[in-house]
Design a protein around this nucleic acid. Structure first.
Lengths: 135, 135
DNA sequence: CTGCATCCTCGTTGATACTG
DNA sequence: CAGTATCAACGAGGATGCAG
């Protein structure tokens, strides 16, 4: 719960200076660094259909190393975006599930992915045209 | 194709493969690396109210270096997310404007920022609790 | 199977100085 | 004012090996 009233935020946003007041830059960057890193978003995305085990994740996110998988998973769990359920059995089994918080984020992620899917051709074209023009 | 292990079966049972097919991973990552980097999103955000000059951007995005500002600006322009208008006058003047493509992205960005604003306290709390529990 | 520790590489960033 | 060029530093990330 933040103590700032929404109207006040909006008023500040449309104000003369910037869409994002300096006070907000901090946690925006902070949050973005979490979800915007190389793997978090992908993990959240593949976790959406249902719980997955460590090895499954490694298979479904091609290119990720064990190190990064462990690291990202831990971080995501610490942030409460996913939950970790470890079964002390033999063989060991650990399942990762999308927590409600992560699920909320997934909505946004889906939008972003949709946008990427819709416009990546356009972006590509723009980039190549720029490269051609520039050379 | 008959080497179907349990993980594959489980994944298949939940859904076809994943929320994100492997074919999409590429440009998702590609797009995310664009907009998810340290500065692009901030620049897009501050550009939303209207065109800004180089120095204005440097002022409104505190902490950014000239190098990163130039780099990010150029990349954004090449991708067609912003437009660059240079007036060969004296003194030199260059204005950067949010292009339609960038404006579309801004919608998503706004959602993400909203989510960050709504949940950063929660994330913080979760993280600290995890740290406490873990130690 | 799950995951951590170590080492090492390499890309990204920032500081500084310089040009049109 | 609006950049570009060079250098140095930092940190993310990959490979490997080992432990529970």
């Amino acid at each position: 719960m933040k103590m700032v009233d929404e109207a006040e935020v909006t008023a500040a946003a449309i104000g003369p200076c910037a869409a994002i007041p300096a006070e907000h830059m901090g946690f925006i960057r902070e949050t973005l660094d979490r979800v915007g890193d190389k793997w978090s978003l992908l993990i959240i995305a593949v976790l959406e259909p249902g719980p997955l085990r460590y090895t499954d994740l490694q298979r479904q996110v091609p290119g990720i190393s064990q190190r990064m998988l462990s690291l990202t998973l831990r971080q995501l769990a610490e942030d409460g975006l996913i939950t970790r359920a470890a079964y002390a059995e033999v063989p060991p089994r650990v399942e990762y599930t999308l927590a409600p918080l992560g699920r909320g984020l997934h909505e946004i992620v889906t939008s972003l992915i949709g946008w990427a899917a819709d416009h990546h051709d356009e972006i590509r074209a723009n980039r190549e045209r720029a490269a051609t023009t520039g050379s």
